[in-house]
Each structure stands twice: as structure tokens, then as C-alpha cells.
Design a protein around this nucleic acid. Structure first.
Lengths: 155, 155
DNA sequence: TAGATTTGTGGGAGATTGTGGGTAATACTA
DNA sequence: TAGTATTACCCACAATCTCCCACAAATCTA
């Protein structure tokens, strides 16, 4: 799965049936990895939907279920929050996926409106354009953020 | 059993005979794993019923009986809570299961009313909608919860 | 620049799903 | 044992969803 490489930002529209076309560039990446199924779920930041290629989702799922203890209430609540909005989607013959009303509501995405696809290397995000702008304005990376990031072996 | 992957939230109704349809998505997951029997039992949080696919239930049962110490009163109480309301259910030809009056009473689920199915990876929960809302409002994930979760190797 | 191919979007028909109810078999009760 | 209640197993049907086809706009290629 290390070869997935989603990059860039693309504008698409959600149709009357809650379908969105995955950008062709991203579809090619999926096709090369022979992936035709993704899992969409609530993004951690509000205002967007995460789109995980199936192998990435399975990796996340395995990590979660390995470390969850279901007698722990916090764990249970966390698990519910992750899973209840997660949905498996198989790309249709046009390369589209169907969003759920619940996720659209959570992300502020409206039927017939535009959305922004962002590639994040091995997964994607779908944003409502206004929410994305707002998010970028409200949470710029500060100097101290960079100092914290410096502690990770990043670039 | 690692391949079970119940995700999403679906609204269904309990009919006059205490039957609920298992959401089609979940039925497909069960069918692919060739499972047609589940065990329903009292959920740990109040207001819901747990639905374990048979293999998951057997795994839970084995874990419990291996580690329970019956001289320990907490263990005995926990065991009783799990077992006394646990019921084996075989899906009918429409993919429905029948809830027991006792479990419905415990979960606040009423005949003819709606329920919410939540997928939690390898099992499901059935909630009374009001109880679920109440639970979510009363026990939101806090910043300190996330800090604790951050220490787990999750995502 | 012109043709060919790919891409984005829309809509319609058939299959699936959720739900209700009826009947026969079984279990329970007095 | 007879009557009653409960359960299991069908069938039915409307609403919904999924899949497939179609076409226009955009992009690529020669």
C-alpha cells in the first residue's frame, strides 16, 4: 500500500442522488493498485469526509480493534464515533461513490453543490469549499506547531 | 473472523412480533462469512442490545471462562449480567431476528418503534434512538479522552 | 486544428429491501 | 387432555436503491 500517492486538489459536484465522481487522477492511482472499494468516514476535523482506500481502512481497523478494550467506556464511545459514520463504497461503473446523508450533514455538504477533493498521500478528503476555507483561515500552522513537528523525523 | 467489518448506522423498526430486520449491509457481511446465527445480549452501556455473530460470541465466551475467577464477586456479577439475557437467534428467511421482551425492556426498546443499528467492526449494537442520543450527549469524548487515545498506536 | 478519447453528469428500469400479515406447528397452562 | 398462547415459516408488495446506459464537455493526440 506504500505506493498509493494521492496529491492535488480537485473540484467536483455532488448530484441529486448524493453521488460524487472521484477525480480521474485519483481513480488512476486506485486502479493501478487494483482497488475498487473505499471506506468513507467522518473526518477528525469537522467539515469534511475522509476517503480511505480499502487496504488503508483495513489497516486502521486492525490497529483500532487490536488496542480497544470494550469494557472501557471511552474506548467504546470512540469506536462508535469512528464506525457509525464509516461506510464501504464500491466505485460504480463511472467511478463514482455515493455519500451518506449523515456524512453530508456532518461535513456541511449539500446535494448538488461543489466539493473539494484533497489528496493526502494514501487517502483523500472531501471538503465543503466554505468549510475548507474557514478551516484554513482559522487554523494556520504556527511557529510552535512547527517546533513540535520538528521532534518527528519528518522531512 | 478478522474479516467481519460492520460499519455505519441504520434505522429499522421492531414489528408487532418483536422482529427486527438486520440491515442489508450487515446481512451481506454475515453471509460472506457464512454466518446465520447471532447471540444478542445486554449491552454494557444501558439502552442498547449487543448483537454478536456466533464466532465472535464463542470467542468472548472462551475468553471469559478462561479468565473469570468465580471466587471474585465482581467477576460473578459480570458473568451473570452477560449470560442471563444472552439469547441465540437464527436469522429468518427475511434476515430478521426476534428480540426477547426482557432485552427490549432493559434497552428501552418498544414494540413497533424505531431502533438504530450501529456497526462496531466485528459486532453490532441495537439502540433505542432516544437512549442513543442521551448517551451521546451525556458522554461526549473530551480533550483528555483524546490525549489518552493518542497514547494508543491508533491511526 | 480536427478528430478521438476520456471525463463529468444525468436519468430510467429492474432488482433488492423493509415490513406486514396469515397459517401451521409447537409449547405452555390450567 | 383441551384450550390458549407463542413461535416458525411462508407469501406479498410498495418504496428504495443499484446498476446500466446515454450524452455533453473537456482533454488529449496526431
Amino acid at each position: 500500500m506504500g505506493y498509493l500517492d494521492f496529491t492535488g486538489k480537485y473540484t467536483h459536484s455532488v448530484d441529486a442522488k448524493n453521488r460524487v465522481n472521484i477525480p480521474a487522477r485519483f481513480r488512476k492511482v486506485l486502479a493501478e493498485a487494483e482497488i475498487c472499494e473505499v471506506v468513507i468516514s467522518k473526518g477528525i476535523d469537522s467539515g469534511h469526509i475522509d476517503v480511505f482506500p480499502l487496504p488503508k481502512w483495513l489497516a486502521i481497523r486492525d490497529k483500532i480493534s487490536a488496542s480497544m478494550q470494550l469494557v472501557n467506556r471511552t474506548h467504546r464511545n470512540f469506536l462508535r464515533q469512528i464506525t457509525q459514520n464509516a461506510t464501504h463504497c464500491v466505485l460504480d461503473s463511472q467511478g463514482r461513490i455515493m455519500l451518506t446523508p449523515a456524512l453530508m450533514e456532518l461535513a456541511g455538504i449539500k446535494k448538488g453543490a461543489n466539493v473539494e477533493f484533497i489528496g493526502l498521500l494514501d487517502f483523500m478528503e472531501i471538503w465543503d469549499p466554505d468549510e475548507l476555507k474557514k478551516h484554513e483561515e482559522n487554523t494556520p500552522l504556527t511557529e510552535s506547531d512547527f517546533e513540535k513537528l520538528e521532534q518527528l523525523p519528518l522531512i
